[in-house]
């Protein structure tokens, strides 16, 4: 294997794993739910994205091109904000304790059926 590509792959793999780990560390260490939401949904997504790019580069050597890893990356980047948004809404709906006071706007709470 070309040593330059190998170094690039090693860097991508380590960087990806590091971001994944940081996401989980944030999940454990941050004090309240809405803060915790920030860590895994985004650090982890970027980490896995970087690992998938590494996988794409690894399987693209020689004359074959492997791009389908892009599909998972794309899918994760589209779905992560949706999950984060829904979890934030669920937390607001349940009135979880947060360190940031929600804005005092007199608006009917959504998602409640009387």
């Amino acid at each position: 294997m070309n040593p330059l590509i190998e170094a690039l792959l090693a860097l991508l793999v380590l960087l990806g794993a590091a971001f994944t780990l940081v996401g989980s560390v944030g999940l454990v260490r941050l004090p309240d739910f809405l803060s915790r939401l920030h860590a895994p949904t985004k650090s982890t997504t970027l980490g896995v994205g970087s690992l998938l790019i590494a996988s794409g580069v690894y399987f693209s050597q020689g004359d074959t091109l492997s791009l389908h890893e892009l599909l998972v990356t794309l899918f994760l980047f589209i779905t992560a904000p949706v999950s984060a948004h829904l979890l934030a809404r669920a937390a607001l709906h349940l009135g979880l304790p947060t360190r940031a006071a929600p804005p005092a706007v007199g608006e009917p709470r959504d998602g409640v059926r009387s």
Partner: peptide, 26 residues
């Protein structure tokens, strides 16, 4: 301690598993 926390942890577990599978594949 709350249910959204558990859902978030589960979501993170899924994504971490993807990372594990990709590494294992390489």
């Amino acid at each position: 301690p709350s249910t959204p926390d558990r859902i978030l942890a589960l979501d993170t577990l899924y994504i971490n598993t993807i990372a594990l599978l990709v590494l294992f594949g390489i």
